[in-house]
């Protein structure tokens, strides 16, 4: 646990020292959502209708944007070698790095999401569920993304491949995340969606570290 927290702290610290990474993710998130009113027109009813979906899709793309560097920096400077050889289980390394990714790329999205919900004319009562669904779902984005990032770590142009590998796997997270918010808007029960969303995150937490660790070992061979 000490090593786990050390690694987590280092990754978060690095993200802050190098700056911009979190800021860029948030900026991308905001701009992407802003494109939709510009594309479909400022009709408040339509915006409110597509709002939850737009915010989730934008969150998903923003997470993806920062994922391809998840293991790449450590791979390029040799730190991954030392992480693999260290006493900390590689699966735990994956979880620590995914957690750092969530803290630096997922959490900021959560913080800015209410503003975007205002942009999209979302029902004020749905704000709580919006945040809850993002909070439960974005960890799954980081964890699933870790598998893709690990598989493409040794590739020069891994970014496009990463999207191709990962986006289909994001479908359940997207569906349950959006359906929770829509339930809240139509004042039906959002709990089933939220539970399913949590289930997806938990299943992901069980599978992704194993798959990503296997992929990382492979990349170093």
């Amino acid at each position: 646990m000490r090593l786990f927290l050390n690694l987590l702290r280092r990754d978060v610290l690095l993200a802050f020292r190098q700056g911009s990474a979190s800021g860029m993710t948030v900026a991308f998130f905001v701009i992407t959502v802003t494109l939709f009113p510009l594309a479909v027109g400022p009709d408040a009813v339509i915006l409110a209708r597509i709002g939850p979906g737009v915010i989730w899709v934008a969150a998903l793309l923003s997470a993806l944007l920062s994922l391809d560097r998840l293991f790449q920096a450590d791979f390029e400077d040799g730190a991954l070698d030392l992480l693999v050889l260290s006493p900390l289980l590689l699966e735990a390394v994956v979880i620590a790095k995914a957690a750092a990714h969530w803290l630096t790329a997922g959490l900021p999205l959560l913080l800015i999401a209410p503003v975007l919900a205002l942009f999209m004319n979302l029902d004020l009562e749905a704000f709580g569920i919006l945040l809850l669904s993002l909070a439960l779902g974005t960890p799954a984005l980081s964890l699933i993304g870790a598998v893709g990032a690990a598989l493409t770590v040794a590739l020069k142009r891994g970014g496009a491949l990463l999207s191709l590998l990962i986006l289909p796997l994001y479908v359940p997270t997207l569906i349950f995340g959006v359906s929770a918010i829509e339930a809240a808007i139509t004042s039906s029960d959002p709990v089933p969606s939220l539970l399913l969303l949590m289930a997806v995150s938990l299943v992901t937490l069980a599978i992704s570290p194993i798959a990503a660790a296997a992929a990382l070992r492979l990349a170093l061979e």
Binding site: R10, L13, Q18, D77, G78, A79, D81, L82, L85
Partner: peptide
């Protein structure tokens, strides 16, 4: 201890 070609140092730290 393994010390390879790559030095596993973070320029920002």
């Amino acid at each position: 201890h393994y010390a390879g070609h790559l030095m596993a140092l973070k320029p920002a730290l």
